[in-house]
Design a binder for these strands. Structure first.
Lengths: 214, 214
DNA sequence: TAAAATATCACCCTTAAAGGGGATTGACAG
DNA sequence: CTGTCAATCCCCTTTAAGGGTGATATTTTA
């Protein structure tokens, strides 16, 4: 079954050539083409596409602003940004707004077609330079300091709950242990983390992004 | 010019079939195949590949441990992980260690070949499910919840120190205020944050990435 | 098998934290 | 000029947290 497509692209020449190219393949069915996103919600509601191709730089309102509107109608609709811009700001705003793919216009239209197919299969198609940016950002921000404090299984369980802000009494009850046992574990945890109290322990775990799940 | 390939894969059958498939194309030149990464550094130094394909689960040492070794020899060498695992931990550790691509074995070998070509062009090839994980992580980390709790300047100062794990007494001294004043501020802070104690406040601020410095 | 680590619980004592209430001063807005 | 808000401080009470010490059973490891 053909992928139902809606395209928002203000460049009329590009728009019609995309229409011709995409229409010539049986894999894609273009159910709408528009030069702006002013009527996006109504369009999406009535056409019910599988994938939306969004230019960013369009008159009056940019494409990014249309992403949440599309996703609100149906979160299953995939959105591929198709733009000449590769600056961090537009990229980040697009992805955070919910875009599923990001293809640069400087690549061949063929890449866009591949991206449409990929996004419809649940993938995240991106031009190489874009993917590189996302990966770098991921490495910087997501990299949890994987320090080893040699906590035991039980200690880790206690610490996980402590980090949620729970009281000692509550933690003990939750883990079916005596209050004094819980305190005993906490004392050992504090020693191993080189902290003096629960507040410092929470701060250390969360600030250093220490992963307690393994 | 053919892409120079080194493959680390402990499954002998898979290894030889990859060799046959890749060797039959003129686009790839396999310059080495190994069942473990024990000699990785020496191998990489002598073979000088463009791309390394790395299995994760291998005897003695896992593939992830070889990534920094490879990158240290020459950072321009691309590394594609080729594995059956799609758990967050292995994925994150691989990418943070410097992997450029992550392909699941459950997809066809053809996908691996495409990935090799893509990574050599500077892309970041990933199986759809993997790319989705990275994107979600990116969205979370890049978008700090910018909730507004209407804290006063003084309250923010107190909260900043509390989040460092300091005691009330210490905070008061640090900000040149009486102990009781500090407590008074804390009471107001707890009300505004909808928490019941300092531990919950710390957890809330750090987990939600609330910026106290704006 | 003996020693070490782990998980469990208990008691005492001190300090820290939190909840409630109240009061004063200064600034600023209506 | 009066009410509100922020910041300051104090008292009292209860609860939570932490340090020290020790004991027992189980499991793991050397």
């Amino acid at each position: 079954m053909a992928i139902r497509l809606v395209i928002f692209e203000d460049n009329e020449i590009l728009r019609s050539s995309l229409c011709t190219l995409l229409g010539s393949s049986g894999d894609y069915q273009i159910v709408g083409m528009y030069g702006d996103v002013m009527e996006a919600e109504q369009i999406i509601r009535s056409t019910r596409p599988d994938v939306v191709v969004l230019d960013i730089d369009m008159p009056v309102r940019d494409g990014i602003s249309a992403i949440p509107i599309i996703k609100q109608v149906d979160n299953a609709i995939s959105v591929v940004m198709y733009t000449q811009f590769e600056d961090d700001d537009r990229l980040f705003r697009s992805l955070c707004a919910g875009a599923d793919g990001y293809v640069l216009k400087k690549t061949t239209p063929l890449k866009l077609f591949e991206a449409i197919a990929e996004v419809h299969k649940g993938g995240v198609p991106m031009s190489p330079a874009i993917a590189q940016k996302v990966l770098n950002s991921f490495r910087e921000k997501a990299k949890p300091k994987q320090e080893e404090y040699f906590l035991t299984v039980r200690e880790t369980e206690v610490l996980k709950l402590l980090v949620k802000g729970y009281t000692v009494k509550y933690i003990a009850a939750d883990l079916h242990m005596a209050y004094e046992t819980c305190r005993s574990h906490l004392r050992n945890i504090y020693k191993k983390l080189h902290v003096r109290c629960g507040k410092e322990a929470i701060a250390k775990i969360l600030k250093d992004r220490i992963n307690l799940n393994r």
